[in-house]
Computed example of a mutant assay.
Amino acid sequence: MNAQVDVLEHVVIAVDGTSGSGKSSTCRAVADRLGLRYLDTGAQYRAVTWWMLEQGVDVHDAAAVAARAGEPVLVSGTDPLAPTITVDGVDVSVQIRSDEVNAAVSPVSAVPEVRARLVAMQQAIIAPPGGRHGGIVVEGRDIGTVVWPQAELKVYLTADPAARAARRALENGGVDAASIAATRESLLARDEIDSGRAVAPLTMADGAVHIDSTELTLDEVVDAVVGLVMERR
């Protein structure tokens, strides 16, 4: 195990992909299995969105969001078994998963000033200046393209819309047909916004390995990613 940890000491695994494709569960399990840190960049964008809503900022007014993008103080925990996200010292891990944040996160994430600030934060977490920091699994939508294109392994994780909607609806406590249909429309709308935004659109990075999780169990996806990591090391 020590030899493995030494080999993976500075490895960066970048996992991008669509909402509901299993990124969070996969990344946390991979990080835990390999003894690595974990960073959910989507939680950071959600945290900023939550803060904007709390402050009464019109999230559809890009100039208003940009003007206050530097104010919230964010801290991301990197323990894959207990990831945390705080804003101004308050744990908002639950609040950032609300319907209100779900509906507002894409327009906030598209604001260049928000992305510039959070990308800089993410890069500092991946490789803190001046010291040993350990390897990390980072999930998001622009990790392999913008945040850390030099990652040793880049994965692009997807699943078909029906499977993603069923998974996300189940996470949110709704398993009836109406809940799944509404979730599917929400996911597709976010995909369209994220893929079409001018800054850091959702796209598969050069050299990324595409994994379609539609017909795979979580363990099978995790095994595939861990296998790819070990092949490259």
Score class of each variant (00 low, 15 high):
residue 48 V to Q: 02
residue 88 D to L: 14
residue 94 V to P: 04
residue 58 D to V: 07
residue 88 D to R: 15
residue 106 S to A: 14
residue 91 D to A: 05
residue 95 Q to A: 11
residue 61 D to L: 12
residue 83 P to G: 14
residue 55 Q to M: 12
residue 86 T to K: 00
residue 44 Q to H: 11
residue 78 T to H: 10
residue 95 Q to L: 05
residue 51 W to E: 01
residue 71 E to D: 15
residue 75 V to D: 13
residue 100 E to D: 12
residue 73 V to M: 13
residue 79 D to H: 09
residue 104 A to W: 00
residue 94 V to Q: 13
residue 110 A to W: 06
residue 101 V to I: 11
residue 94 V to F: 14
residue 112 P to W: 05
residue 80 P to M: 08
residue 108 V to Q: 00
residue 89 G to Y: 08
residue 82 A to Q: 12
residue 100 E to G: 06
residue 85 I to Y: 10
residue 100 E to L: 14
residue 85 I to N: 01
residue 88 D to S: 14
residue 50 W to R: 07
residue 75 V to K: 02
residue 91 D to I: 09
residue 95 Q to S: 04
residue 69 A to L: 10
residue 88 D to P: 10
residue 77 G to K: 13
residue 86 T to E: 04
residue 87 V to N: 01
residue 76 S to N: 14
residue 79 D to R: 09
residue 72 P to S: 10
residue 63 A to C: 11
residue 80 P to E: 06
residue 72 P to M: 09
residue 66 A to H: 12
residue 104 A to K: 01
residue 75 V to Y: 10
residue 109 S to F: 04
residue 74 L to S: 05
residue 89 G to H: 10
residue 74 L to P: 04
residue 91 D to M: 13
residue 45 Y to N: 03
residue 102 N to P: 03
residue 99 D to M: 06
residue 53 L to Y: 07
residue 62 A to N: 03
residue 111 V to D: 01
residue 84 T to C: 05
residue 52 M to Q: 09
residue 78 T to G: 03
residue 106 S to Q: 10
residue 68 R to T: 12
residue 86 T to G: 04
residue 97 R to G: 10
residue 109 S to T: 10
residue 61 D to G: 12
residue 51 W to D: 01
residue 69 A to Y: 03
residue 70 G to F: 12
residue 96 I to G: 06
residue 76 S to L: 15
residue 96 I to T: 03
residue 94 V to N: 10
residue 107 P to T: 15
residue 106 S to T: 15
residue 48 V to G: 07
residue 77 G to S: 05
residue 50 W to P: 01
residue 96 I to L: 15
residue 83 P to M: 11
residue 96 I to C: 03
